[in-house]
């Protein structure tokens, strides 16, 4: 537990705003503004915040899908240029996207979708690719018959399982879960959350779990970071955040979190 698996140091992701006749750059949108945190091997860091606070941008910046404006990201203690090393880094860090309906190429079968990263990165020898695809499908609780089918033939929960299998294909050490359950039904959400937990136990994965609600994050996270307007306003263990929130925004967020059990509801509203 000495070196963190991922260190994010003063990371900024700004988008230029261009207006006017000559497309002059007038200002920036500070999507991620000076964020720092660490994730240790095997733990889950939950990242919560309202829509538009920059949490997804942060996740995409970490795997190099968005250009880093300023700051430093260290993986396994080594500084990484995520813009130039995007291809090789994808083997270490993977992402599960929010919307399982639009994030799978509709023209490729599930077998092709899963085989593609395996071939591109030479994860397994060519003749073992089919077995590996089957193994991945079984890992996320799908049967081998899914191989020949197309994404539109699956339900949302099944598609998210495919999305997870796809992320696992490269055998990454860190998985960024970018609101992986918010597009799903509540009953399916629980299944997928349990799958994440089970995979973490079996494969020793590290998660950065992004969500806009506290419910999902509380269930899965060891530590929680609360993000507001591009900055992390509070970070602590799940217990600290829920029992003793420090920042005003965290308190508001907790107040908005519905408690399914009416007898427990009163405890929170008193705070």
């Amino acid at each position: 537990m000495d070196t963190p698996l991922l260190t994010v140091k003063n990371v900024k992701t700004y988008y230029p705003v261009k207006t006017g006749f000559m497309n002059l750059q007038t200002s920036y949108v500070r999507a991620v503004d000076d964020v720092s945190f660490e994730i240790y091997e095997g733990e889950t860091l939950g990242l919560v915040g309202e829509s538009g606070c920059g949490k997804s941008t942060l996740g995409r910046t970490i795997i190099g899908l968005e250009p880093l404006t300023d700051g430093e990201i260290l993986f396994d203690g080594k500084p990484m240029n995520f813009r130039t090393d995007r291809v090789s880094l994808s083997k270490q860090i993977q992402i599960v996207f929010q919307d399982p309906y639009s994030s799978l190429n509709p023209r490729l079968t599930i077998g092709d979708l899963l085989a593609e990263p395996l071939t591109v990165h030479n994860i397994v020898p060519r003749n073992e690719i089919q077995q590996e695809v089957t193994r991945l499908l079984q890992l996320v609780g799908l049967s081998e018959t899914a191989k020949a089918r197309y994404p539109h033939e699956f339900s949302g929960g099944q598609r998210q399982r495919i999305g997870i299998a796809r992320a696992l294909a490269l055998r990454p050490r860190l998985i960024i879960c970018d609101e992986p359950v918010s597009a799903l039904d509540v009953s399916i959400q629980a299944q997928i959350m349990n799958l994440f937990k089970q995979l973490q136990r079996e494969l020793g994965l590290t998660y950065l779990f992004i969500a806009h609600g506290l419910g999902a994050v509380k269930y899965i996270s060891d530590r929680i970071a609360v993000m507001y307007a591009g900055k992390i306003v509070e970070m602590g263990t799940a217990e600290q955040i829920f029992k003793n929130p420090q920042h005003e925004y965290t308190k508001k967020l907790l107040g908005a979190y519905p408690i399914p059990d009416p007898t427990k509801r009163s405890i929170l509203t008193q705070q």
Binding site: V87, S88, S90, F97, S103, E116, P117, V120, A167, L170
Partner: peptide, 9 residues
């Protein structure tokens, strides 16, 4: 974006 996340060129 998924394809890019896979590490494809």
């Amino acid at each position: 974006r998924t394809a890019r996340a896979k590490g494809l060129k």
